[in-house]
């Protein structure tokens, strides 16, 4: 009884004598493997050689400063809300008198932590940020032996004043 019209006739032919000897097939296999022997592998020797990544690669985060070197972040928490992996936590604090050169607005993040093991580098935090404070950079979070070292605080996230990080390309991704 034919149930469907997709049935296939299976070939169950006996092997010929030449095929039964296997030798041609073995030689064919060896020819294939030896060609691979001389092929260049795709391996990148990582710590010495770094694979080139896209200029808009989503890697380690940076907390941006403005032109006068003040932190953009106001600890509104929108990034933490947007984060699907719940990797971001922060504590807000009020800016004191005399700290105007450090923080751009009256409120700032006293503590800002991203758990790099939870983070999935989706970039939703930078999309959510109303203050253009957080961006992803093409850098990788370095390997480590201890899980606790993967919780990056402000010391690792805020961009250094003397070594500003260019995120214009990431910005373009969001405006276009």
């Amino acid at each position: 009884m034919q149930l469907t019209n997709r049935s296939k006739v299976v070939s169950n032919k006996q092997m010929t004598l030449a095929e039964k000897m296997y030798l041609p097939a073995i030689l064919g296999g060896m020819w294939i493997t030896i060609r691979h022997f001389f092929r260049k592998g795709a391996t990148v020797r990582y710590p010495e050689v770094k694979r080139e990544v896209s200029t808009v690669y989503r890697g380690k985060h940076v907390l941006k400063r403005d032109e006068q070197g003040r932190e953009n972040c106001t600890a509104c928490g929108l990034c933490a809300v947007a984060c699907p992996a719940e990797a971001i936590t922060m504590d807000a604090a009020e800016r004191k008198k005399g700290e105007e050169h450090l923080y751009r607005e009256e409120k700032y993040a006293a503590k800002y932590e991203i758990n790099m093991l939870r983070c999935i580098f989706c970039g939703l935090c930078e999309e959510a940020c109303p203050k253009q404070a957080i961006y992803l950079t093409p850098e990788f979070p370095a390997a480590n032996y201890d899980r606790s070292n993967f919780i990056f605080g402000k010391d690792k996230l805020v961009e250094p004043i003397d070594k500003r990080i260019d995120v214009s390309l990431r910005k373009k991704v969001h405006t276009s």
């Binding site: 493997t33 030896i34 691979h36 022997f37 092929r39 260049k40 592998g41 795709a42 391996t43 020797r45």
Partner: peptide
């Protein structure tokens, strides 16, 4: 040899 035959290093 195994690595080279498998396009590894």
């Amino acid at each position: 040899v195994a690595a080279f035959l498998q396009d590894r290093i």
